[in-house]
Design a protein around this nucleic acid. Structure first.
Lengths: 145, 145
DNA sequence: TATTTATTTATATTTATTATAAATAAGATT
DNA sequence: AATCTTATTTATAATAAATATAAATAAATA
């Protein structure tokens, strides 16, 4: 379950940032897409609608959303790109090493794990990334390798 | 528990790669250090001993070890650097967001999780990265922020 | 020892991201 | 509404990690 468009935009507003058309479009795409897009994907997707859009604006907006805790940057997806995930609730990311699709899985076990980890380590836990890698059902059929 | 020096070097040898002094030194450092070093850290650490060492050799050796499954590249450690982990057995990485130390934790729960995930998703699972973020015991005391 | 092949090194190149500064747009003030 | 102030966007330049290339070196083989 992704952060909604409303929660992304209201977080920007509460931080004193203006809700410009560019920022709103980036939020809309993040909230609606289930693709864990990269900065480049967001830029290319929005360019037809906003021909003057600059990549810098995409980077800036993503950085703001990450700092506000509304979006996670995933750096370990198996390709070499940073993907953005508007779902900041505890869950598992499953990346296909062949087609590089990323899907989300609920993981109620995480809460229990969290407790065990902080007890065992003394760390005060603030977040997690649970990335699993494998072949998705489609690529298991298609791929010979 | 890290891959031993012996397993790193024998994996290189079995792959038909020569055990040069540079490669052996990189393996030794990976096996002995518990610091999850970056390529730059390895390079700087070995330079006094190997003044002619080139960064390219470090990158090449790490790439070979990663491709042989002897070392994991961790791209999501909270700083913006790729850290290398010679422990490829299933475990949890715990990164301190203040001092950027990374520690390992055993996680016998992972095997069960693995089964649940492949059943729920249809993915054929091949690996995982379990990164948790927080404040280590030292930084909880030290930091005011 | 000469020859072949792998490896290392030095250098150049690439590419994602960040920094900078001018241009633009929005909000506030009068 | 017009002006002033500030934020934002854009275009461009700069940065830095990683990769590619090619010459130099070292190792293995004959």
């Amino acid at each position: 379950m992704s952060s909604s468009y409303a929660s992304l935009t209201s977080a920007l507003k509460q931080a004193g940032l203006r809700l410009t058309p560019q920022r709103l479009a980036i939020c809309r795409f993040l909230a609606e897409s289930r693709e864990h897009p990269t900065a480049a994907m967001i830029y290319e997707h929005l360019r037809p609608e906003y021909p003057s859009l600059s990549a810098m604006t995409v980077y800036n907006t993503l950085k703001a959303l990450v700092e506000l805790g509304q979006v996670n940057a995933l750096g370990d997806c198996g390709d070499d790109n940073v993907h953005y995930d508007a779902d900041t609730s505890p869950h598992i990311n499953l990346a296909c090493i062949s087609c590089h699709r990323i899907m989300d899985l609920p993981a109620p076990q995480i809460e229990a794990l969290d407790g065990e980890i902080s007890r065992a380590s003394g760390y005060q836990l603030l977040g997690a990334r649970l990335m699993f890698y494998g072949l998705c059902p489609d690529c298991q059929k298609t791929r010979v390798l």
